[in-house]
Simulated scan of single mutants.
Amino acid sequence: MKPILVLQHEATQGPGVLLDHLEKNGLCYQLLMSPLEGRAPVLARDYSGIVVLGSDHSVNEDLPWIVCEQALLQDAVQRHVPVLGHCFGAQLLARSLGAKVQRSPYPNIGWGQVWSSPYAQRVMGLPRRAVLFNWHYDTFQIPSGASRTLYGPHCLNKGFGLGPHWAFQGHLEVTADSIRQWCDHGRHELAQVYGPAAQDADHILLGLDQHVSTLHLLARQTYQRWTDQLLERSGFARTQIHMPSLYAGQ
């Protein structure tokens, strides 16, 4: 089975619980920091799947590495290589599919409730209601042919699915430690945000362990469903995978 490409963009926004899932299941992966490289791979055929994590940047910025990542996702869609997008990654997948990404009416920062569609419950195994961790200012339109999977009270489009390509306008991968780091790194930002979907650091960290524990149940279920697709496409059964992880820098 070819490695899974994981595209990371910020030092504080790593793959977290996703990495735990890949290593626990013996799935090969390659972790790449596109902004440091100034580029991303161009050919999706070299990977069994592509994961795109969050970023402090907007997908509408004209940066070389963002242009490269968008071209990679467009190639992945054409070649039917499954894509999994988190926040920035979800927006980039939407944009790669021709959908518009624009400023949301309200910043979405902190814990927020979402509801899942019957499609998401059936295909992704998502519960009818869940609480996600958010940190985003932009929102995407649902691409043509895709199905909305998650929606929220202050941001309608919180997720979509198009065949094996899944997008989450939120963070499933975060850990308690990474959220603390985000709050510390963004303390000045948190002091200035406002709106019905923006929380300060005190509210974000209140009951953190319980929030993260519940979120991880959802994340593991979602990651298992998504990587099962990769195994099926590669002709492997889950119990047949015993390959060492491939880790390529941070």
Rank of each mutant, 00 (worst) to 15 (best):
C28P: 07
L18I: 15
C87V: 08
K158E: 01
D75N: 13
W65C: 11
H86V: 15
Q240S: 06
A146L: 08
Q91W: 11
R238L: 10
Q181A: 11
L190D: 01
V77R: 07
P127Q: 06
L132T: 00
R129N: 03
Q181W: 04
G249K: 14
G249W: 10
W166T: 06
D177Q: 15
R122M: 06
L73T: 00
C155Y: 04
A130I: 05
V67G: 07
T139Y: 05
T175F: 09
L246P: 00
I241M: 12
I50K: 02
N134T: 09
G235L: 10
G16P: 01
R238P: 04
C87D: 00
Y137K: 12
E173P: 00
P3I: 10
T175E: 04
L84A: 03
G161S: 07
S245I: 05
D184A: 15
Q221Y: 02
H242K: 13
L43T: 09
M33F: 08
V51W: 03
L205V: 05
L63Q: 14
V17D: 01
L63V: 10
P244D: 11
E173V: 09
H21K: 03
Y119Q: 12
L205R: 05
A11C: 08
A44G: 06
P244T: 11
A76D: 02
G85K: 11
A201E: 13
P127T: 06
V77K: 03
L208G: 10
H171F: 07
Q102V: 12
D200L: 05
P143Q: 09
L150C: 04
A197T: 00
H188L: 13
A176H: 05
V174L: 14
P118S: 07
R180T: 10
V42W: 06
P41F: 06
L7H: 02
S213W: 07
P64M: 15
